[in-house]
Design a protein around this nucleic acid. Structure first.
Lengths: 195, 195
DNA sequence: AGGCAAATGTAGCACTCGCTACACTTTCTC
DNA sequence: GAGAAAGTGTAGCGAGTGCTACATTTGCCT
């Protein structure tokens, strides 16, 4: 049932596209199936249940995000990397992926499954890819994790505010400030600012 | 129908308590009414429809948040203020309010009403109260807005990650780094780091 | 060609949803 | 005390939900 058949994979990709466009909340099988040119019966044939489908969609979206970050050109320095990352996260296909992740994380805030579990797992891979990117852009290994935690949290928060501010100069200012802050962490002496 | 009767206000407060505890997603009138010792019929008598109720709940929660920030003791400096704010947001009654706001903001990410509209309105008051708090803690007026945008976004993002990290040292490190970053903005010469 | 398993269509079950119609009681007003 | 208004209970509608039973078709293997 849950094996990786060709058809299942194709459905997962198509479903992910649809969810990236229309969001997770209120997602229901019949409209989704119609949009995909199939039937709810088929979705439940290839996926164990709705939760299985949603979990799969979240994993597909997360994989896309990570793959996109891996393709990103290295930044000249850490601050530059942050700016490049923000640009990628708000323009390319990553914008919808990021939005979906924020939505799933919010849905998992109270421990709702399958969101909480999948988000926890997805976050690990995402953070690791960010750590790798910062390192490729010159961040010392021993401070990359610390830098990424601040970076990731702020990127999430900015995404939450995006419908309010869109790409106003204020947001660009915030991204610039974030870049400085992350660079400061990367440049600090190992014990500086340590709590 | 939508006038501010005593009963309506009481119901709104009680409903807010319940929503803060159980979240917005999957909220339905009958279980909510049962928990409140009334009936769905009554909720729809005092509120125009479910959206009206939800919007009211979000406003009540937001008002509580703002009132709590106004009661916060001033920080010795901006960095101290950030730390005090984080402490208040993660321990007191504000923790649930913040979580609810994050949830509502995420639900409004695709423009879903009533979330998008209410969140937009709520955000204004919230940002204003943060600006006031930073100013009371020594932040120059002309840079308070810029500082708050970064501050608010990062606080949101950290809240999104809370179920993952809880109060690990890593999160405390991130808060400390955020405090430094916000203080740096507050201390910068007016044109420094300006985009 | 025959057989078999994967894939798909049709129909429907049991349930919950927001919301409403209607009747009834309580409370306030004059 | 009569009448109006506000408040409340009961019952139910129509639509949508996830999911399943059953029958059928499709496509591959020998």
């Amino acid at each position: 049932m849950a094996q990786e058949t060709k058809r299942r994979t194709a459905l997962a990709e198509a479903a992910t596209d649809h969810v990236l466009e229309h969001g997770l909340v209120g997602l229901s099988l019949r409209p989704l199936a119609t949009a995909l040119g199939t039937s709810d019966r088929m979705l439940l044939y290839h996926f164990a249940d709705k939760d299985d489908l949603v979990a799969t969609v979240l994993r597909v979206s997360n994989d896309r995000s990570i793959r996109e970050v891996e393709k990103l050109p290295d930044g000249d320095d850490v601050a530059d990397a942050v700016r490049l990352l923000w640009h990628a996260l708000t323009t390319g296909p990553l914008e919808h992926c990021q939005r979906l992740y924020v939505e799933a994380a919010a849905l998992g805030l109270l421990g709702r499954e399958p969101y909480a579990g999948v988000v926890r797992q997805a976050n690990e891979g995402w953070v690791a890819s960010l750590v790798g990117y910062l390192r490729r852009s010159g961040c010392p290994e021993e401070r990359a994790g610390r830098a990424v935690l601040l970076l990731d949290a702020t990127l999430m928060g900015l995404h939450l505010d995006l419908p309010l501010d869109r790409d106003t100069p204020a947001v660009q200012q915030a991204v610039a400030d974030l870049a400085e802050a992350v660079a400061a962490i990367a440049a600090a002496r190992p014990d500086q600012g340590r709590v």
